[in-house]
Design a protein around this nucleic acid. Structure first.
Lengths: 229, 229
DNA sequence: TCAAAAGTGTTGACCCTACACCCATGG
DNA sequence: CCATGGGTGTAGGGTCAACACTTTTGA
């Protein structure tokens, strides 16, 4: 009885589409898959699923990311709701999230299972429906976020080198960054700790590993620090 | 047949909740109303409605704003989707938009019809469900947007004085702004045109009216200019 | 020994901030 | 004539961007 006003209203399928981002070979990558069912079977698609009645939307997104990557330790943020009438065959409202994951933790067996691949954001193919727009919106949002929070660490493992971190930011902003200025800024923020070991994979000289100081990092996030570049 | 995969999925009521903002008496105001039906009948609520099958979400929001204000010339931007399981009695997913309107155009007869009022954002009462969180998120977003786009003009009429514009920005940022610095920045952006007349309502001396140059303004929006302050 | 990437400081330009007094006018 | 809000400029500090050479070491 309390809900009488709610009767006779239209109801909708609600999906989540996840832009799952990882960092590899000096570039941001997004996980996409061949769509396994009609319509547009075989087209490239973001990883998605339907929201179930017994979970909230963010939980759906987390579930979807877990399902397709095997990773549960993720950074997740909502991009928005996409509700064009003709955006799918049925009337489906999609809520889009982007997820930042450490690509090293990806369960590669799932790639075959779902016919999924990591594609450089600079080389994304045509995706089904409005998925390309979702990606564009996400990149804009990510750039915005990265300029305010040191969010990029979510894409890396526990330790990383400064050249790697720099190329990550270059990939996010899609433009080159001055090496000395980048280091200066990062190091003066005082959230990085230099380690003893070097990474010798990419140069003879080797680059020192760093890790970030979780406490100071969280502190800065709290304050909403302006981290431009 | 094409849609077989879509069968047996849960469907949801989808609402739009609108944070309708206007500027009056040196403060941002939000239009809220007494909820006319159960549950929580009589509680303070944002202006909302359900999405219909034959309209996209943004159209729903525009419809809702028009319905409750009589204004159709609005700036509208999505805040996000709110989908907690227990956020309403029924499982309702809400998509939130904020609207910036010229409060002078408000059809006051609608205030009585819907038991609605404009309340200063600094004096909002407890709202139903998660509406207070929606407002908080919106203010954060608005501050963000206002620092990047000269968005505030949507809250004013065709002409306005610099003191008014300043107090609008002070209301958005919820902190005082230096008069000279504010003017300097605005005027050097070269999107304002000084008019002949003065507004003598608030002082003996009177303040010159300005209007904004729509072309340059749109041009700047395009470029995504950084308009800090 | 040389190629290839890592690491390191300084300077000038610009922008942001802080700050105080005169002006115009209606009552 | 005076109280009230409108209008105006400058100087110092800090931040950002540009820029080139040395170091290390595996091949």
């Amino acid at each position: 009885m309390t809900a009488s006003f709610y009767l006779n209203k239209d109801t909708f399928l609600v999906a989540v589409d996840c832009i799952i981002m990882g960092f590899r070979d000096n570039d941001l990558h997004i996980l996409i898959a061949r769509r396994p069912f009609e319509p547009l079977k075989g087209g490239w698609s973001l990883m998605g699923g339907f929201v179930n009645a017994q979970e909230n939307i963010q939980e759906s997104a987390k579930r979807v990311v877990g399902e397709y990557t095997g990773i549960n330790d993720i950074y997740l943020e909502q991009v928005g709701a996409y509700g064009e009438i003709d955006r799918d065959v049925e009337r489906v409202i999609s809520v889009v999230y982007y997820a930042l994951v450490d690509i090293e933790k990806f369960d590669t067996s799932l790639a075959e299972k779902y016919d999924a691949r990591w594609i450089r954001i600079t080389q994304l193919p045509e995706l089904v429906f409005d998925h390309n727009k979702m990606v564009r919106d996400t990149i804009k949002l990510l750039q915005q976020r990265a300029s305010v929070k040191p969010i990029g660490f979510n894409l890396l493992g526990d330790q990383f080198t400064l050249p790697t971190l720099q190329s990550l930011y270059e990939s996010i902003y899609q433009e080159p960054i001055d090496k000395r200025n980048f280091r200066k800024k990062l190091l003066t923020m005082d959230i990085l700790e230099k380690l003893e070991e070097k990474d010798k994979n990419t140069s003879k000289k080797g680059a020192f590993y760093y890790k970030y100081n979780k406490e100071k990092y969280d502190q800065l996030i709290q304050q909403g620090l302006h981290f431009s570049l």
